[in-house]
Design a protein around this nucleic acid. Structure first.
Lengths: 159, 159
DNA sequence: CCGCATTAGTTGCAATTGCAACTATAATCC
DNA sequence: GGATTATAGTTGCAATTGCAACTAATGCGG
């Protein structure tokens, strides 16, 4: 391994944004691999289902907010789910622009079949950590989440 | 907020894979926003540069391994970088299939200009945590990374 | 009320990505 | 040493995604 000779060292392996990205990717695609093939669901679709299972009647914009997806992604996910008969789409009486989304019985069935898979995977992942470490990790993660949100786009250090 | 009435509760906000994905995404796109516009770099290209800056002379496969990207992504990133005169590409004498990649002077210049931006962003993100918490977080993250790698694709719980 | 700005959601198009097929070189086995 | 198998990297094609433009419905100021 040749010695690096740079004034400012940045090694990818220790760069937090990179590490987060790799872990999130590994985890997401492991999970997606499980339910994509089994249920014909994409990640956005799975997210929509997960949200609607707990809070039926949301609008597309509500779903977008809760899933951190953009409205286009939600629109397409919902279209696919509706076509498969997994969500129902109606117009709100009070505001005919808004849609009112809910899981159909079939959608609920899919949800009930995926949840155990998802939770089992999460459980096996977190089994790496002791309960104390888990809650520690969750706390730190939450704080970083808030912070990253405050920071917004990386600005110039000062120019 | 309607009360959820599901046997197995899975709320997205508390689902670790989801939270990891959201954080990683926020962070990555904040950073990408900074160097994409300023330097015309994609995330894969930035990763290639970061690796080659520290270890010149790697092959494309080496880069793929170190960046957790697949070989196609590396190939295209390198093509773009080579066209922009930021990396040089040669064939290894001993094995004419392998390429020997290095940053050109211009590539090094780009690297030196991005590093401070990237490190500054990371510093501001991690400033949320005390030094002790930072190292705690890094340790836990590393363990989860290993674990997720061992787990591989999410298998059926047992069927 | 009537125009003007806003908001919800969809669609089109261009860029990105992922996977499989392909080319070229190298290693292996008989 | 010649056929077979494996490896490095590229390319083509199809699917995903992101952004901007668009439609439809609502709200608001005069």
């Amino acid at each position: 391994m040749p010695a690096p000779a740079n004034p400012l060292a940045l090694s990818l392996e220790h760069f937090m944004p990179y590490r987060l990205s790799v872990l999130a990717n590994t985890v997401s695609s492991a999970l997606a691999g499980a339910y994509a093939s089994r249920f014909g669901l994409t990640i956005p679709q799975w997210r929509v289902i997960a949200v609607l299972a707990r809070v039926p009647g949301l609008s597309a914009a509500d779903v977008a907010e809760r899933t951190a997806m953009d409205k286009v992604a939600v629109s397409r996910a919902v279209t696919g789910l509706a076509r498969a008969g997994r969500v129902s789409r109606a117009l709100a009486a009070s505001d005919k622009r808004r849609s009112v989304l809910s899981l159909t019985v079939r959608g609920q069935a899919v949800y009930r079949r995926i949840v155990p898979l998802a939770l089992a995977y999460e459980r096996r992942l977190l089994a790496e950590l002791s309960p104390a470490e888990q809650s520690q990790f969750e706390t730190l993660l939450l704080r970083l989440q808030k912070r990253s949100w405050q920071l917004g786009p990386a600005r110039e250090a000062r120019v």
